[in-house]
Nucleic acid binder design. Structure first.
Length: 424
RNA sequence: GGAGAGGUGGCUGAGCGGCUGAAAGCGCCCGCCUGCUAAGCGGGUAUAGGGUUUAUAGCUCUAUCGAGGGUUCGAAUCCCUCCCUCUCCGCCA
């Protein structure tokens, strides 16, 4: 949420920032016009209210002295009904304005490269090298099927395409990955572990920016009007909704495992083969509540914490800074971590590390008290996956496969998986 | 699912038609005092928005006691609807 004052004062720079995102300027103009209307009505109704209030105070004073106030009361009824009518108009105008404000995306940070779409993204780091297999290597899908790690057909039978059923060693490998990542983040990286609810209320999804714009991307449990979380970011970011934190406690760092549910409407075909794009998946999410002055520094370290997962597993990856046109709705700046899947031959996004600055904090009313001034201020939220498992498993399998059809498990994962190899 | 209680400031908690933007306590800030610490004393301390303004200073107005509606000249206080939380019972992993 962008404060109105800023929209008024920095109209032109905001228009440019939104244009960089590919967002048309009309919405901003509409908001400014509505703001004019609201303020005009406000001035009018507040003047009337001031008159009404002072007249009422006089009546109160008279009555307290036991005097008659009938004369003063007469005539105020008319004023009151005018106030009521105007108030109604004002509410309407304000509601229209507020709901439009919720559709404005976060303007990109000054450091974000300008670009129209993913082609404008900038690679900022690269690590490791994927193996060159000197045998006919299988892709992630074929490996999962032949090693019976995932039963895609059975999953589809019960839930439809995109709901993988992990079986046997596949289920164990999935569990190993989750435990490995949680231990890493809660251990050496110092995050506190959380295990959040998977269903959230509307207002929680509004905080993080899924609502109102991205409602169609989420599953809805209609009977109770609860959304299945697309990421643990949603519940975790809301854990301090409406609360006031102490400045000295910042930053707060949380690592949360959750299942994630995404409708991914309209994205089928080659992109979704195997585990490349699914409706339900597992993920360890990292969330930080930070001081406004520190959020960009915290974004860098969070990105490092997510990268650490990939490094310890010895997988080749790159870091891509998203350009303005590819940023998600709520993000001001974002790095994607992409694994290289050697057989599929593509870079696979396994994490988005974003700074949302005060955008989510304003929507969710997440505040802290400044110790120097004693004043309330919005904190900043930073989060990223650390990381999502499906493409991680896919890359792990493609990378670790051997000539004989077995898959070598990375050393860091062996204590969790309980074995160093998946035999054919 | 059934029955009851309740939602007030950073927190606890009074108030139940006008003198209440809201007692008291805690916390926090400033000052005093005590060789350190603790205690004590005095003062201050809600948020948002509009107007005015060079000003995020000041002044002023308005709103806010879960949300919305109603009664009234006037509502934290009375009435209605909804949301949420808690307790007990039932059901269930």
């Amino acid at each position: 949420m962008i404060p109105l004052k800023r929209i008024r004062e920095e109209t032109e720079s905001l228009k440019k920032a939104l244009a960089d995102r590919g967002e048309p300027a009309e919405l901003l103009d509409k908001i400014l016009a509505q703001d004019e209307t609201v303020r005009g009505l406000m001035t009018e109704v507040e003047g009337l209210k001031a008159r009404r209030n002072s007249a009422s105070a006089e009546i109160g004073a008279l009555k307290n002295r036991g005097e008659n106030a009938d004369e003063q009361i007469r005539g105020l009824g008319d004023l009151s009904s005018r106030v009521k009518a105007l108030d109604r108009q004002l509410d309407q105008a304000r509601q229209a304005l507020d709901s439009d404000l919720l559709w404005l995306p976060n303007p990109p940070h000054a450091s974000v490269p300008v670009g129209a779409d993913a082609s404008g993204n900038v690679e900022v780091a690269r690590w490791g090298a994927a193996p060159q297999h000197d045998f006919p290597a299988r892709d992630q899908h074929d490996l999962m099927v032949s090693l019976r790690l995932v039963d895609f057909e059975a999953g589809a039978r019960m839930s439809g395409a995109g709901f993988p059923l992990y079986t046997g060693r596949g289920a164990r490998l999935e569990r190993a990955l989750i435990n490995f990542m949680l231990d890493l983040q809660t251990g050496q990286n110092g995050y506190e572990e959380l295990w959040p609810p998977y269903l959230v209320r509307r207002d929680a999804a509004l905080t993080t920016g899924q609502l109102p714009k991205l409602e169609a991307d989420m599953y809805l449990a209609a009977q109770d009007d609860l959304f299945l979380i697309p990421t643990a970011e949603v519940p975790v970011t809301n854990m301090f909704k409406g609360e006031v934190l102490d400045e000295a406690d910042l930053p707060l760092k949380y690592a949360a495992y959750s299942a994630c549910f995404r409708r991914e409407a309209g994205s089928y075909g080659k992109e979704s083969r195997g585990l490349l794009r699914v409706h339900q998946f597992n993920k360890v999410e990292l969330v930080k509540f930070t001081h406004p002055d520190r959020s960009y520094a915290e974004l860098e370290t969070l990105r490092g914490d997510a990268e650490e997962v990939l490094r310890q597993l010895g997988l080749a990856y790159r870091v891509v800074e998203l350009c303005s046109g590819d940023l998600s709705f709520a993000a001001a700046k974002c790095y994607d971590l992409e694994l290289f899947a050697p057989v599929t031959g593509r870079w696979l996004e396994v994490s988005s590390c974003s700074n949302f600055v005060d955008f989510q904090a304003r929507r969710g009313n997440l505040r802290f008290r400044r110790s120097d001034t004693g004043k309330l201020d919005y904190l900043h939220t930073v989060n990223g996956s650390g990381v999502a498992t499906p493409r991680l498993m896919a890359t792990l399998l493609e990378t670790g496969q051997q000539k004989d059809g077995a898959v070598l498990i990375p050393e860091a994962l062996r204590p969790y998986f309980g074995s160093e190899v998946i035999e054919p």
